[in-house]
Each structure stands twice: as structure tokens, then as C-alpha cells.
Design a protein around this nucleic acid. Structure first.
Lengths: 209, 209
DNA sequence: TAGATTGTTAATCGATTAACAATC
DNA sequence: TAGATTGTTAATCGATTAACAATC
């Protein structure tokens, strides 16, 4: 997109900007300075200006930033100006929880189908989306140009599922299994490693005592 | 514990060491050098040695590290050498998913009770744990010395729940809601902000095209 | 002993903060 | 215009990598 490489640290802060700007919009605030934003979001004003200037001059000297315009710009950077076709693999509690999140759909992540190995789940509709046989996954992903797959299987089938997804042109994998998936070069991955987060939490618990 | 302040970056790598060491144990490997570990875990050998030396000399020159001993040491650092009493607030799909994770229990995180506002869920047993009325939450946490609360409510009640938890002596909060909770000084928090992770994923998807 | 590999110091790299000229 | 606040450069801080003496 823009110039060169934006650092990972900056990228991971963008969604938080997006969320706080949305809150400001809800409160009908349409103008904010880096200093004021700093107070509510907790990043330094200097960091906020540096972060935003990676992508262009969104502010105005003497005025600050227009909340709604900045919200939209950051949305665009994150790729929220388009829709994504998604599937869920693993229709257990977690898969069902994700299927029921209206928030994802609201931001353009459109769930097309769910897949499972369990015959008892097949045909079930969750939030109006059908659970299909996982054997159909590869063809479905290819034929429907699925963008993102949420992998909620158990640990042991995760890599095998990832292989099928990659072979059929998946662009992104959202991995909820405690495994580091190996993907083809065309695909990107983000991990939700719950247990790692929980371990970190108990570390901090001890340190805080 | 040890000397002074360990950096956040190091702490967040510890669970990954723990996981890979566990895999090595499964493969009956009982000795590993930083160089070999580097190859499978993806951190540089130098970084591995630096990380581990924050906590003490776990290795032996000319030999490397004993896998099982290192695994146990890291577990101890993360606080896995004790048990934690946990509760889940919000017995929807996500709460139920977390209640069913046998992995957490295996590492000492013992689920004591679940809470919900929905009367239809009350009395239900999930993985042998009862769903109680959320009105009982405060008393339960205080009387049973609950260590960690998994907050799986909706966005709007999250902070209110957090206040009740803090008032009754919770030590750690695992937050699954898209809100930055404000806690009393005695409590620590880790966030699973799903939507932020998903936004980051679509950013990378675009960059990778 | 010789070889291997750690523990640790020094060098480098990258990210955050501070400062201020540009400008609305 | 005067005041405010950005955009951007420079300074600082922290984390990662490289190097090597210590030592098993």
C-alpha cells in the first residue's frame, strides 16, 4: 500500500484506535487531539501521532483529528471497507460461539458455512448457517472463494485442515487450536492461543501478590 | 520473585517454550541445545539463552538444557505449580466452550461455578459445573476465595461484573469482552479481544495479496 | 583433553518519547 | 493574528543479535 514496511507493533494498535474512535462517535464527539485521545486510550500523544503518520497526514495542525474521518481511514487500512467470506471448521461450543457473534458480520465478515466431522451436527443450522460434512470443505472453499477460515477443531486435526484450506486457496486462517500451523506462502494466520494467554495471566497474578 | 523486572516480551514467550518443551517430552527427547530449540520454535538461539537467563542458569555448558527440568522450571515461573479456583461469568456458547476445555483443568485451573442472568440456564450443569444466578456472584467469589474469573458476558455488563469481582477479592480477570476493564489495584487482567485479532488478520490478508 | 554449548557482555537494531518548526 | 496542535526529526530507551570467555 503506502511506502514500505509498517511495524507489527503499530498494526496491532490500530484496532484499538478503531474501537475508541467508535466510542467517541457514539458520544457525538467529532474532533479529538492526540493529547485528549492519549488520555482515554492510554498511548502517548507522541506515539499516536507517529502511528497515524505511518499512513498519511490524517490530522490538521491547530485542530486535531476528525473522529469520523479517522475512524473510516483506520477501517480502510484494516481492510474493513470490503466483505470477507468466512467458514468455521469445528461446530462445537467455540465454533457455535463464533457463529453467533453478530459483531463479526457487522464489520463485513460474512459466515457462509460451518463444517464438522460429527454426523450428529450435520444439517444443523446455527445463526442461519448450515453445518456441513468436513469432507466437503476443500471443494466448498475453492468453489465459493472463501477468504477466511476460523479453525476451531481439536489439536490433532488442525494441521490437516490447514493443508486442505491452503490447497484450495484460502487467504487467511484464524487459528483457535494450540498448534502453530504451517501454511503455504499465499495464506496468513492469526492465532488465539487461549492457554498461552491464561498462563500469562497466572504469571501476572503471582507477580501482583 | 527473582531480581527485578522481566520484560513483557519475555513473559509472553514463556508459554510457547512451555508448549514446545512438552512436545519434546512427548517425543522422549530429554536434552536440547538453544540452537536445536531455535530451529523448531523459531526464536533465535541467542534470544532463547537470554530469555532463560532472566530466571537463572537452567542450562549446562557443552550439554544444553534438560527438557523436563526446563519444562518444570518454566511451569513454575508461570505459576503452574499450584491450583487456581476459577469461575465463568456468562454461560453462553463461549462460556460453555471454556467450561468444556479439559486442558485448563489439566494445568490446575479448576472451574468451581458458572454464572448467568438467564433464568433458563440456571441449574444447568456443564461439564459437571453448575450454572448459578449472577446475583450470587459476589458472595460466591468472596466465600470461596476464587482466584480467576473468566468474563464472557456481553459488552454492556462487563465493567459492572468486574466491579463486583474486584469488590470481592478476585485476583485475576480473563476478559473476553471487547471492553478495556478498569480493575482495582489488587487484580490483574488479560484480554482476549477477538475482534481486534480478526481486524489484524484482514490487514495481513490485504498486505499478503 | 577437545568439543560443545552455555551465560554474559557488547553491538546493533528498532520502537518510543521528546522537541520543535510548520501550519491551520 | 495568536494559539493550538500536527507532522517530523532527533534523542532516548529497550529489545534483539552477535560474539566470546567460561566451563561442562
Amino acid at each position: 500500500m503506502k511506502d514500505n514496511k509498517i511495524s507489527m507493533a503499530v498494526i496491532r494498535r490500530l484496532p484499538k484506535y478503531h474501537r475508541y474512535l467508535s466510542q467517541l462517535m457514539d458520544r457525538d464527539i467529532n474532533r479529538i487531539s492526540s493529547k485528549e485521545l492519549s488520555k482515554i486510550i492510554g498511548f502517548s500523544a507522541s506515539q499516536i501521532r507517529q502511528d497515524l503518520n505511518n499512513f498519511g497526514g490524517f490530522g490538521q495542525q491547530g485542530y486535531g483529528y476528525n473522529v469520523e474521518a479517522l475512524y473510516r481511514e483506520i477501517g480502510k487500512i484494516l481492510g474493513l471497507d470490503r466483505e470477507y467470506k468466512t467458514v468455521i471448521i469445528g461446530a462445537g461450543n467455540l465454533g457455535q460461539a463464533l457463529a453467533n457473534y453478530t459483531n463479526f458480520s457487522r464489520f463485513g465478515y460474512k459466515l457462509q458455512a460451518m463444517f464438522d466431522v460429527n454426523p450428529r451436527l450435520m444439517g444443523l443450522r446455527i445463526n442461519d448457517v448450515e453445518v456441513k460434512d468436513v469432507d466437503l470443505l476443500g471443494d466448498y472453499v475453492r468453489e465459493n472463494n472463501i477468504d477466511i477460515a476460523y479453525v476451531c477443531t481439536n489439536r490433532s486435526s488442525a494441521q490437516q485442515i490447514a493443508d486442505i484450506l491452503c490447497k484450495n486457496g484460502i487467504k487467511a486462517v484464524w487459528n483457535f487450536t494450540p498448534v502453530d500451523l504451517v501454511l503455504k506462502k499465499g495464506a496468513v494466520v492469526e492465532n488465539i492461543h487461549l492457554i498461552e494467554n491464561l498462563f500469562t495471566l497466572s504469571y501476572f497474578l503471582k507477580e501482583n501478590e
